[in-house]
Design a protein around this nucleic acid. Structure first.
Lengths: 372, 372
DNA sequence: TTGTAAGCGTTATCAT
DNA sequence: ATGATAACGCTTACAA
């Protein structure tokens, strides 16, 4: 394994000069630089990252802490982060928490060991205590998707409020009056904001809010199934369900199957975040799609900008536009004959409409408006 | 940031003793150890990984090089790797190649910089040249899923041959005679082996092999669509298609839709690797399922075993059992009335059968039998 | 069981 | 524009 000293000898310079060439320092004579580059090439020299990091305190790597690497939304975020990181020579440490605080804490320990220069995290919840290691060590951090109460930090996210509002307005415009909502944990800002958007749309339409139709669980398939089943078992009879993410929607589909309800004929379904390839397999789901890849890309670019001193002090927040993809998800529409009809042959092609969602004015000054 | 020297001073010992405590060396007096641990705790000391790595040459991290982090199969592999790695205190660097040799080469450079102790890789192809950096530097490596020609290295994979053979036998048992196959690139062992299994099943049943029905492309949705379309446009009229992976199957579903063919009524479809949550959305797909999580877990455990000297010399190969999940994917079955009927309401519950697949005796001595 | 000394390969600092 | 020197924080080898 050639070292910087070997290269220096071969090029007839000192190790420092080699270091300057490696790091693109300005003050190296072109001819010297060429000699050094030739020596590097001849020896197949690659800098030792451990030595480099020990001296320079820069690790050239990021931690990406995600709640569920099985979910296509997070997977797409990860791709965005990776592409941006690789473009600037940074490695990405993948940390999958499964929405589990203990696992998250374990990964934050990794942060403390100075293994990474910065962190991109979608925290399990909004409790600032749970991300204390990041704040204590002043670790450069970008929070994605969720928020942390009282922490003024760089953030990149989609527009949960506007997306939820648009989806529920869409249901209402199709004639739905009794719309149930199944959402994630209280204290997770995305879950809270989507409930708020739901309330806003109902209020705007002058529809009553039946609190029994609003359920809070976890962002998991099993939780979506349980909540949906409970709603029907309690004799409430919504004609539509708004699932706060794709996993919850899959749970709702499961429950509907068990209950003998057909989607979309008997029960309309809309949700946040598309199912992977759902339009191909199941063209009945109207969704609010966040720009997952761009969220990852933007978060990594922002973080790298901080690390490289290109972005200066005040913490920034980026809210990337969410789009609604309208498919034939709503019983009413089908019954009125504007859809492809009930005994839909499979496979089928349904034209999708992709509609940009404008931001809405909500109680934006509230950090986490649904929080009790 | 406290260093090992700070801890040593506070505990009244030398830095070496602290190092011994950190690394669980046997020869430290219990009382001394307690004092050191107390000091570590008081100071919130965390070892500096860069310094540790520079000296010990161990990075405590692995690279996981995958072709497509968007595919649920690879995502599940990644979870297995991560769980095994975290259990032994290793970080995982995620490297997504998109089946792109240039990207793969970039990530192999990372390997050369001694950033990782070992590599788990599903290579883009079987060309040993393309993984030369791993061999030259004798980097501990586990190859997963695919194989590399002429490289006797640790491997963990599913059983492509047996899985393909079982799927095609299943189609034949349902009465299909003209079965098309769409597969991945020549030279990718999984793609080749699945074609071989297809040939074996047809041969065993005494059915002729129509070479025009065998297509080779890439493991991508677009490729599956093109190949399927081409087959029908050329006037060949298969009653069933065997897709060599899930992405190709999705492409086939797309093409079928465009061609006005319903699955499973007009065209049966089987494939390797399940679609994410497909049974919920699209209960017509019989699949050969590889134990993705276990492949990742086993690969990481094997690699860590090598690194920690617990596994000794001869390279090992693990072929983990593949299962077949039978759903109502076959037109014949439906037409004969044993299925749920044509105008299937959605959502529907279809009982799945999960059947273990026994290994089959193929020309196993051939490294990559379909290679031209 | 504990300590001393040396050095891993690089870069920061200062000097020329 | 280039070089000499020291230091980053830890672990290995050897000594006591």
């Amino acid at each position: 394994m050639a070292t910087i000293t070997d290269v220096a000898k071969r090029a007839g310079v000192s190790p420092v000069t080699v270091s300057r060439v490696i790091n693109n320092a300005s003050n190296v004579m072109p001819e010297t630089r060429a000699r050094v580059l030739a020596a590097i090439h001849d020896l197949g020299y690659v800098p030792n990252v451990a030595a480099r990091s020990l001296r320079s305190k820069r690790m050239h790597s990021l931690a990406l802490i995600l709640p569920d690497i099985t979910n296509s939304f997070w997977t797409t975020v990860a791709r965005g982060v990776e592409d941006a990181a690789q473009a600037r020579g940074h490695a990405v440490l993948l940390c999958n928490t499964d929405e589990n605080l203990a696992k998250q804490a374990g990964y934050l320990r990794l942060v403390a060991s100075q293994r990474v220069d910065g962190v991109i995290i979608a925290p399990c919840d909004d409790d600032p205590e749970h991300v204390a290691p990041l704040r204590e060590r002043a670790m450069p951090t970008v929070v994605i998707d969720r928020m942390v109460t009282g922490w003024d930090v760089d953030r990149v996210r989609g527009d949960s409020l506007a997306g939820a509002y648009a989806l529920v307005r869409h249901l209402i415009s199709l004639g739905h009056v009794r719309i149930a909502m199944i959402s994630g944990p209280c204290g997770t800002s995305t879950a809270d904001e989507r409930v708020l958007g739901y309330r806003m749309a109902l209020a705007e339409a002058g529809l009553p809010v039946d609190e029994r139709l609003i359920r809070r669980g976890e962002f998991r398939i099993s939780s979506g199934e349980q909540m949906t089943r409970a709603i029907f078992q309690e004799g409430l009879r919504p004609t539509a369900i708004f699932a706060a993410n794709n996993a919850l929607a899959m749970g709702a589909i499961d429950a509907a199957g068990e209950l003998g309800l057909r989607i979309p004929q008997d029960l309309a379904l809309v949700c946040f975040d598309d199912l992977a390839n759902s339009s191909r397999l199941f063209p009945f789901l109207t969704v609010a799609v966040q720009p997952a890849y761009e969220i990852g890309l933007k978060a990594a670019q922002l973080l790298l900008g901080r690390l490289e001193g290109r972005v200066a002090d005040p913490p920034r927040e980026f809210v990337l536009p969410t789009r609604m993809i309208v498919r034939y998800s709503c019983g009413v529409r089908l019954k009125e004959g504007t859809g492809p009809g009930l005994s839909l042959p499979l496979p089928v092609r349904v034209d999708e409409q992709s509609i940009p969602i404008p931001p809405v004015a909500g109680p934006a000054h509230l950090a986490n408006p649904e929080r009790r």
